[in-house]
Amino acid sequence: MHDLPFNFVDYEGIKRLFIYFYKDVQLVTRNTAKADIIINRYKKEKEMVKSLLDNAPGRISFTSDLWTSLTTDGYMCLTCHFIDNNWTLQKRVLSYTFMPPPHSGLALSTKIHNLLCE
């Protein structure tokens, strides 16, 4: 809410304040708070994208991009493009994922299919 760092919950004064207001409070670490926020945000964004795609009045175009990192790990980004109800071109990244070799047509189509099913 106020762009505070996740380690805000580790400040001794904040811990005392929480305990003062509610003696039985279950304090969490910054890693737990961060994980909860990120997971909830991910689920919310995923549902929003699903809703956008469900309500798209026309076709949806998918593109994928493959590249190799300096450590020779392969990655793939799956993106969709569509026109919304207001005739505005929309673009959403659906997935950014590790793509192990081989990068054959069969491997790529299987990976894309699995990502779209997810």
Rank of each mutant, 00 (worst) to 15 (best):
P5R: 04
F8V: 09
F8S: 10
V9Q: 00
E12H: 14
G13I: 02
L17F: 13
L17V: 07
F18V: 02
F21E: 12
Y22G: 01
Y22R: 15
D24P: 01
V25W: 08
Q26M: 07
Q26D: 13
T29P: 04
N31Y: 02
D36W: 08
R41Y: 06
Y42P: 04
K44L: 08
E45V: 10
E45I: 09
E47G: 06
M48L: 14
M48N: 11
K50Y: 05
S51K: 12
L52F: 01
L53R: 04
G58N: 14
G58T: 07
R59D: 14
I60N: 06
S61G: 10
S61K: 07
T63C: 01
S64M: 08
L66M: 12
L66Y: 01
W67E: 06
T72G: 06
T72M: 13
Y75G: 06
M76K: 00
M76V: 09
H81Y: 09
F82P: 08
I83E: 03
N86I: 04
Q90H: 00
Q90L: 09
Q90S: 07
Q90R: 14
R92D: 04
R92Q: 08
V93D: 03
L94P: 00
S95E: 00
Y96C: 11
T97L: 01
F98I: 09
M99A: 15
M99R: 08
P100D: 09
P101E: 13
P102R: 08
H103P: 05
H103L: 10
S104H: 06
G105Y: 07
G105M: 06
